[in-house]
Design a protein around this nucleic acid. Structure first.
Length: 503
RNA sequence: GAUCUGUUAGCUCAGCCGGUAGAGCAACGGCCUUUUAAGCCGUGGGCCUUGGGUUCGAAUCCCAAACAGAUCACCA
């Protein structure tokens, strides 16, 4: 424990004086709240008589002391409201200690108060509560950063250090209302996705986070161990194979919104745990899925942002269907000016070198195509764009393309140069699926740590028969970044992963 | 994993041609009964991230470490 700072000592002393006054700084009783700052702002002017006796609670964020009266700002979840506290009003008798001692001397920014009174406007027009009763609800012992906004909207002494903000997110949420708003919007976004899916009759499900076999994606897993069974387990890197088992089981549409865990690098677009939404719908293909995603995003963006357009990194992005659809090889031709159709692996390797892309011998035809695409095309895909028809070898769970050799029926949705969604016409041929897994095993034998493992039970499920199905995954954090205009994933995660500070 | 930048009071930052620390806000003590980033007067508050080194002397120069951010690499 660090030695206490001057300000911590001052507050602890204040706490003791409050106790000496016979006041409990942490009362157990509920405080009856009848309104909040948002309701007052929204409705006082039209229905003033509703606000002649209100009770409100929140955190004290500013005190402007005027002597025998003072103004204070109380912050609740909806914002701030000014309190007008007059000594004669809250201490009508001879005993002025509640005001002189408790309020003026022993209260600090950060304390929780409950206030009862009537709403009015001051001479200057500021909406305020004329307080007749004031009660301490919780004493704060640690000083908060004091962020002030002046009349021009200029913010002074903003609490901006990302490390401090992420490590002490509660402080960030207290003093930065725009941060609080991001997480409200994120929650709203997920809620609207659920509304959209539930409205179509699809079932929300939960599948195992602890898995014996880490399947469904190419990534390194976290390892853990179950004591009673004495077996190793993995934290899931994907839930795809479980959701498909549910389609085998007879549900026609299932989705899951949940955390995935990947033991890989972290940066401003990657956190070791992240949230994905995966959905599988029977009797559909990836073309149908593109239509569905357009409807979904148009709906969600409009609900959450109030418009179909969002602003990020200097771009105006319009979520209006239809989105552009480009086959991957056409995109490389259009944006990179390279013809890759019909080229051999060796020819592609030369093209990559010419484009200054590092290549090595382990890269096959599909990987080389993917490298060219990432380098030449991705950064140009600002408006929502579907890239379709990926090389087969990199996509072991998707069905072979109905007409194009060497490709699978897969699309990814790109927005603002980044991948937001990934979808397939799902592979439901158990024999083909077994071959694909075997290819993965060969890659693993060559040292590819991300290659998928064989999942015999999943193959058994496919043998029982899976209807034609289309599946989709959306990176919830990435989408939240788009809808909140954030460039870093840490800004849309309440508690992003941080290295512990060693003291 | 690589490179660059940052780390000084509770917060935001200055100080960095080496002479053991400053401002604003916050805190503390005053004055003011409709103010508003309130104001005015006064007072305290710091292992200058950590560990080494150079030097008579280091917040300042050098080396290393920790953490963070940005740019890469890898990936969603």
């Amino acid at each position: 424990m660090h030695p206490l700072s001057e300000q911590q000592i001052v507050r602890r002393n204040a706490l003791n004086e409050i106790l000496a006054l016979g006041i409990n700084p942490y009362p157990a009783e509920a405080f009856d709240v009848t309104t909040d700052s948002g309701a007052i702002r929204a409705r006082f002017d039209t229905e003033p008589d509703q606000f002649s006796n209100v009770s409100i609670a929140g955190r004290l964020m500013m005190i402007r002391d005027m002597g025998k009266a003072c103004f204070a700002e109380l912050q609740d979840e909806k914002g701030r409201i000014q309190l007008y506290i007059k000594r004669e009003e809250i201490c009508p008798g001879d005993d002025k200690s509640l005001y002189d001692q408790l309020f003026k001397r022993l209260s600090d920014i950060g304390d929780f108060f409950g206030a009862r009174g009537y709403v009015f406007r001051t001479k200057v027009g500021e909406l305020s509560i004329h307080v007749v009763e004031l009660r301490l609800l919780s004493k704060s012992l640690h000083p908060l950063p004091v962020v002030k906004t002046d009349a021009d909207g200029k913010v002074h002494d903003a609490f901006t250090d990302p490390e401090q903000r992420y490590r002490h997110r509660y402080v960030d949420l207290i003093v930065n209302p725009q941060v609080r708003e991001i997480f409200v919007r994120r929650s709203h976004m997920i809620q609207e996705m659920r509304n959209f899916f539930n409205g179509r009759g699809w079932l929300e499900v939960e599948t195992p986070v602890l898995q014996n076999i880490h399947g469904g994606a190419a990534a390194r897993p976290f390892h853990t161990h179950h004591n009673a069974l004495d077996i190793p387990l993995f934290l899931r890197i994907a839930n795809e194979l479980y959701l498909k088992r549910l389609i085998v089981g007879g549900y026609s549409g299932v989705y899951e919104i949940g955390k995935m865990f990947r033991n890989e690098g972290m940066d401003r677009t990657h956190n070791p745990e992240f949230t994905s939404m995966e959905i599988y719908v029977a009797y559909k293909d990836y073309l149908w899925m593109m239509d569905m995603v357009e409807d979904l995003l148009e709906y969600v963006v409009e609900k959450v942002c109030g418009t179909k357009q969002v602003e990020i990194s200097g771009h105006s992005i319009r979520f209006v269907k239809p989105f552009r659809r480009i086959p991957m090889l056409d995109a490389i031709r259009e944006f990179g000016g390279l013809e890759v159709e019909g080229k051999t692996e060796a020819e592609l390797r030369i093209l990559c070198r010419q484009a200054n892309i590092q290549v090595d011998a382990s890269m096959g035809w599909g990987k080389l195509i993917d490298e060219l695409f990432s380098e030449l095309v991705e950064p140009h895909l600002i408006q929502p764009t579907y890239i379709m028809d990926y090389p087969l070898e990199m996509t072991p769970l998707a069905k072979k393309h109905r007409s194009k050799d060497g490709l699978v029926e897969r699309f990814e949705l790109y927005v603002n140069g980044k991948e937001i969604a990934n979808a397939y016409t799902e592979l439901n041929d158990p024999l083909d699926q077994r071959q694909r897994f075997e290819e993965q095993l060969k890659l693993a034998a060559r040292g590819d740590e991300e290659a998928m493992a064989m999942d015999e039970d999943f193959l058994l499920a496919l043998e029982y028969g899976m209807p034609p199905t289309s599946g989709l995954g959306i990176g919830i954090d990435r989408l939240a970044m788009l809808l909140t205009g954030q460039e870093a994933i840490q800004e849309v995660l309440l508690f992003p992963q941080m290295k512990p500070v060693t003291v």
